[in-house]
Design a protein around this nucleic acid. Structure first.
Lengths: 250, 250
DNA sequence: TAAATAGTGTCTGTAAGACAGTATACT
DNA sequence: AGTATACTGTCTTACAGACACTATTTA
């Protein structure tokens, strides 16, 4: 494939803003909602040197065919080749968010199952880590990344109320009690078991995947396992879990 | 205020994508949902010359302090100084959507009351017009604007199910029957009067603004008029009008 | 009084929430 | 048997939808 960049004499001579893509990567681990952060490189010329930031960086017009491709590349570089749930959150752009100049970032958020050790090991040289999402909000993140993270958290928690999104935060096949636990971690409140099961099963977006294989020392009745019928999109429920509390954007 | 553009030696030397802002401007007029389109300029060097397109254009880093400011400027240039409901829809960027090069657009959508003649007259030299939204979808719009319009329509119709957004499509003060009509136009289906009134009044986001002034030839019982308590944001309802049908993004 | 529009009351269906109960495994 | 976990049934409550009813205006 030829280079995606090509000099075009029709292109206007406007000064162009810096264009970046950032990814808010969520996972549920140890009873908490976690987010992946990377440490900004040190150096006097570096903006926000040494600060924690969302994974991301400049769009490379020679490599990235689209913003989505760019987001997938950033994910791959930080976590290895995975195919998570990935959705655009929005874009943030102004004259002051990056000291290097007028900058606009296209922000995505992604959901992956609880990170294995392998995922972290496949990261490149830069320091990366999983942080509790609400604690990360209170860190002094680079750029306006605290704002992006807050927006991603609001969007995630809002959509969890009426979609099957948490199924992307868990390894397949999964049991309903395990899925319920993920819902409870993301929402930060307990959910009634009976209502939860009715919703999930009536939704029709899962299919049975056999009884859970018995493990040593496993107590209690074995559970049915399920897998998503369509991993390409989340299912919608006719009503929310509770009354809606917060909006997801703007 | 000094120029927002400043050469910065720390800025990376990456080739930068073209950065634009487009606005999907909605209004309800003549029992239909309308969208504002502008005709692309003619000329061999112009991309999509003569085609209808969404109002928008390049971010001007010397003038626009932020993407939102840029969107407001585009609106002002097309429709005169108005303060509509304005919300970001998302961003679209790839190597091929603009023949002039790798391009990313930040797309907003806005709601304004039924356009008066003045609004159209205040437009600049370029040809502008209001088109039926669904008909505009089937036009061969410039760039990927048909896709942006489809996304805006989906988002609007989705949010109308559980927010007070249509109140921004009507002049204040308004009557409840008039507001119901706007809901029905946007949703494309009738709504039950009783349920509608209960929802709106229980929402608590409107305040009474006196009885409608009698007009000549006006038939029937006069209606109470209302105005929004807070024009800066839409209110959310605890449940949707019907079962949710479609998602708003992704 | 008739027509037109505004606004209310009442019944019903649906689904979520609460919670008690049953089922199936292990020690 | 006892305990732990998985799963189900039943009652209640909240609210949207349907639709018939009342209220207030003009012609």
């Amino acid at each position: 494939m030829a280079s995606l960049r090509s000099f075009n004499p029709r292109a206007p001579s406007f000064p162009r803003p810096l264009t970046t893509v950032d990814v808010v990567l969520f996972a549920v681990q140890d009873d908490g909602l976690k987010v992946l952060l990377v440490r900004r490189p040190d150096g006097a010329a570096e903006p926000f040197a040494g600060r924690w930031a969302l994974p991301g960086g400049f769009v490379n017009v020679d490599v990235d065919a689209s913003l989505l491709d760019c987001a997938l590349r950033k994910l791959r570089e930080k976590t290895g080749a995975i195919t998570p749930y990935l959705e655009q959150l929005g874009s943030w752009g102004n004259a002051t968010r990056d000291p290097r100049g007028w900058s606009a970032t296209h922000c995505f958020y992604a959901l992956v199952p609880a990170p294995s050790v392998d995922l972290q090991r496949s990261a490149n040289a830069t320091e990366v880590g999983w942080f509790d999402a609400d604690a990360a909000l209170r860190k002094r993140l680079a750029f306006d990344h605290a704002e992006l993270l807050a927006a991603a958290l609001a969007r995630l928690r809002s959509k969890v109320e009426y979609t099957s999104l948490p199924a992307f935060l868990i390894e397949e096949p999964f049991t309903l009690p395990a899925l319920q636990h993920v819902y409870e971690v993301v929402l930060g409140r307990p959910v009634d078991k009976s209502a939860f099961r009715k919703r999930m099963l009536d939704g029709g977006f899962m299919e049975e995947a056999g009884m859970r294989a018995a493990e040593a020392g496993q107590l209690g009745r074995p559970a049915m396992t399920y897998r998503l019928r369509d991993r390409s999109q989340a299912a919608l429920f006719p009503r929310t879990f509770n009354a809606r509390g917060a909006d997801d954007m703007g």
